[in-house]
């Protein structure tokens, strides 16, 4: 009994557009492949849930949630939290790397200055 009602249609179209948007961003090189995995999974899960409504109902029952749509909120929230955590990890790595780069720049500028002043003498 796969009657397609309006809500389902809207959610299928919505999650499809999200997936297309993600893939398009990857294609244009605006979203690096290595960071796109979670986004693709998010889009795919949303699409899956809107096509097979029974999935959401079963999931809600399994978790003991009476009102199936709130299971959807739970799934969404968990994904968003994971994404944000993922970003925090990336930001930490980037800031570590930019710190290293800045230090290297300072050291290289001094080395260059030394060479330019023609006094590159090393202490023993």
């Amino acid at each position: 009994m796969m009657m397609i009602d309006r809500v389902q249609l809207v959610s299928i179209v919505g999650s499809l557009s999200l997936l297309v948007l993600i893939l398009e961003l990857i294609r244009r090189g605006k979203l690096a492949e290595r960071y796109s995995l979670l986004w693709i999974v998010t889009g795919a899960v949303l699409l899956g849930l809107s096509i097979w409504r029974g999935l959401l109902d079963n999931f809600a029952v399994a978790l003991g949630i009476f009102y199936p749509p709130s299971a959807l909120f739970l799934v969404g929230l968990v994904f968003v939290l994971l994404l944000i955590l993922h970003f925090s990890v990336i930001v930490s790595r980037l800031s570590r790397r930019s710190r290293l780069l800045a230090q290297e720049v300072a050291l290289l500028k001094e080395a260059l200055r030394e060479i330019q002043e023609g006094m590159g003498e090393e202490i023993d």
Binding site: R99, A102, Q103, V105, A106, L107, K109, E110
Partner: peptide, 8 residues
């Protein structure tokens, strides 16, 4: 002087 390009 080791001048860092921004505050670290």
């Amino acid at each position: 002087v080791l001048r860092l390009p921004f505050n670290l």
